[in-house]
Every structure is written in structure tokens, then in C-alpha cells.
């Protein structure tokens, strides 16, 4: 494998890791506040459709992004109502949201565009275009560092940079602000937060809505930057890979970035090479597909560093009387 192939492989790793990272951070906010969310997939899918649909109709990708975030927030609010206000089962609510998104996106797409559940291909201003970092053109001739800067780091859509900046931002919010301290506390011991006179319900809603916001950006990225338009079930399990990455990262932001980059790399390898020859043994492409899930099960099993979720995760909070 020569240097340029590696650069290209890493470049596509960054692209593929971006939606995973956004969804993973989304799940991190929600689950740190004690709300399990297996509906990341559904929220991304909904956002992917509405961002592509609005971008296709208006020709403005920013309006598309807003529409995507709006639709994802709506599903997040539904998750909040079911699991916070009505203290329902958070897992079942997540399952319902995934199906709701899978069905509604195709239904509305068919009604609006009559193209078999897809949106028209996005052109021109309907897509996020590559965003060049300063001097990317002029330094590309420099050996080794030139291609790394101009190919690997520069030339992604703006949402990629937002996703990677969201990592330190998440870390700062969770571990350096009062809001973050309370948010983590509400996921570990909501009764203590309640005793301190802080609203458990308010904090959990805030977390669920931040989750909706980030899932919205992830979905919009899929449909308007990574690809040009929405197709049926285009998230293809990314919401669950993000969930896997979250467990792999043990609910920590920097580790989440590492896990998402690793899973992004696996996707990039599976996309580029069909079967890989390694010292006479052929690794089938399906093994690459399954690897993120296998790794997550191994981590969950606790044989290599146990993953312990936030203590109050999945438990609806009932105020004592």
C-alpha cells in the first residue's frame, strides 16, 4: 500500500466517521443524563430526509440543515415525553422512533417527490461543498506533510469540522461547566440532584434535546454532504454503530472520537477492499462489517476493561413523596 492510498483511506475514514461521531456525542449527552437512546438511528434518518427534501425544494442547504435539525428535535421531544414525562420504557420508545422514521420518511418522500421513496439528487447550493483550509492549494506540493494537510485535513464539508470541534466542546460542557456537572449527576443519582433543588425533568429534557440537535446535524451530513440526496434507509445501521462506539468509549467524549475513527476506518476498508489478504489468510468483507459489533460485545462482556453505564440509565425518575 503506497502513501497516497493510505492518505485516501484515512480521508474516507474521516468522512465516514463524521456521522458516527455526531450521533455518538448525541447519545453521550442523553445517556449521561440517564436516558437510554436506541433511537439515534431514527432521528438521523428523519433528519437526513428533511434536510435533503428542503434542500432539494429550496436549493439552499442551510435551510435543509435547519429542517433536518427541526425534525430530529421533534422526535427527540417525543422520546422525552414518553420517557421523562410519562416515565415509559426508554428502550421501547427508541424502537418506536426508529420504525416511525423508517416508515414516515419513505411515505412523505413518495408523496412529495414520487421517486420511490427518495429525494431528487441535490445539485449546486443544495449540497455542502468542500471547505478548503487556508493555503491548502499552495502547500500540496510539499512532500508528506503537503498531501496530509491538503488532502486529509482540508477539503471536507464544514459539518466535518463542526463534528470534530464538537468533541472538545462536549468535553468542556460536561466536565467544566455547572450544567455538565448537574447533567452527569442526574444520570448517576437523580434523587441527589432533586434534593439540591435542581429540576431533574428540566435537565433530562435539555440532554434529550441536545441529543436531537446533534443527531439532526448527523443526518443532514449524510444526505447533503456525504451523499447527494436521501434514499430509503440510508442510515444503514449507523445509529447502532454510534451506540456501539459510545459503549466502546465508555461514555467519554475523547474516547468517543477514537472509537468513531476506528469504526470509520473499518467502514472505509470494507468499502475500498472487498476481501483482504493477510499472510495467506483471506479476511472476508463481512468480517469487517461485523467487527464493530463484535468489539462492542467483547467490551460489554468486560473481559477487556468493563464498560459501566451511568448508574441511573434507563430508570424513570419518580419524585419521592
Amino acid at each position: 500500500m503506497d502513501f497516497l492510498t493510505i492518505i485516501q483511506l484515512l480521508d474516507s475514514t474521516v468522512r465516514l466517521a463524521t456521522p458516527l461521531l455526531l450521533a455518538c456525542l448525541a447519545g453521550l449527552f442523553s445517556e449521561r443524563a440517564g436516558i437510554f437512546d436506541i433511537g439515534l438511528e431514527g432521528k438521523m434518518l428523519m433528519a437526513a430526509f428533511f434536510s435533503a427534501a428542503v434542500a432539494a425544494v429550496t436549493g439552499n442547504v442551510w435551510l435543509g440543515l435547519l429542517a433536518g435539525i427541526g425534525s430530529s428535535l421533534l422526535l427527540a421531544a417525543l422520546h422525552g415525553v414518553a420517557s421523562i414525562t410519562f416515565r415509559g420504557n426508554q428502550l421501547i420508545s427508541g424502537v418506536a422512533i426508529n420504525f416511525l422514521a423508517a416508515g414516515m420518511t419513505v411515505l412523505i418522500a413518495q408523496d412529495w417527490f414520487q421517486q420511490g421513496g427518495r429525494t431528487p439528487s441535490l445539485i449546486g447550493g443544495g449540497r455542502f461543498t468542500p471547505f478548503d483550509l487556508p493555503f491548502a492549494g499552495s502547500v500540496s506540493g510539499v512532500p508528506v506533510l503537503g498531501p496530509i494537510y491538503s488532502e486529509l485535513l482540508s477539503g471536507h464539508s464544514i459539518l466535518v469540522y463542526i463534528a470534530f470541534l464538537a468533541v472538545p466542546a462536549t468535553w468542556w460542557v460536561l466536565f467544566r461547566t455547572r450544567f455538565g456537572l448537574r447533567l452527569r449527576a442526574v444520570g448517576e443519582n437523580p434523587a441527589a440532584v432533586d434534593t439540591a433543588g435542581v429540576s431533574v425533568v428540566g435537565l433530562r429534557y435539555a440532554a434529550v434535546l441536545i441529543c436531537g440537535l446533534l443527531c439532526g446535524i448527523a443526518g443532514a451530513y449524510l444526505a447533503t454532504a456525504l451523499q447527494a440526496g436521501f434514499v430509503k434507509d440510508m442510515t444503514a445501521g449507523r445509529g447502532f454503530i454510534a451506540l456501539a462506539a459510545l459503549i466502546f468509549a465508555k461514555w467519554r467524549p475523547w474516547h468517543a472520537m477514537g472509537a468513531c475513527l476506528l469504526f470509520g476506518l473499518l467502514q472505509a476498508i470494507a468499502l475500498r477492499f472487498q476481501n483482504i489478504e493477510l499472510g495467506g489468510i483471506t479476511i472476508p468483507v463481512q468480517a469487517m462489517d461485523a467487527l464493530p459489533y463484535v468489539l462492542t460485545v467483547v467490551i460489554l462482556a468486560g473481559f477487556v476493561g468493563k464498560a459501566i453505564p451511568p448508574r441511573a440509565g434507563g430508570e424513570p425518575y419518580v419524585k419521592e413523596r
Partner: peptide, 25 residues
Amino acid sequence: TSIPRELIVVIQALVILFTGALDNM
């Protein structure tokens, strides 16, 4: 009709939502 099969997925989602998650409602 022009109603896609996915309508069933929506109905399924609503049934799960109301009988499962929104039971308390």
C-alpha cells in the same frame, strides 16, 4: 393505490409507541 408499503411500518411504530412507551399516558 399510491400508498407505499411503509405505511405498515408507521402503524407498527405507532402501536409500539402507544402500547409500550406511552402506556402511562
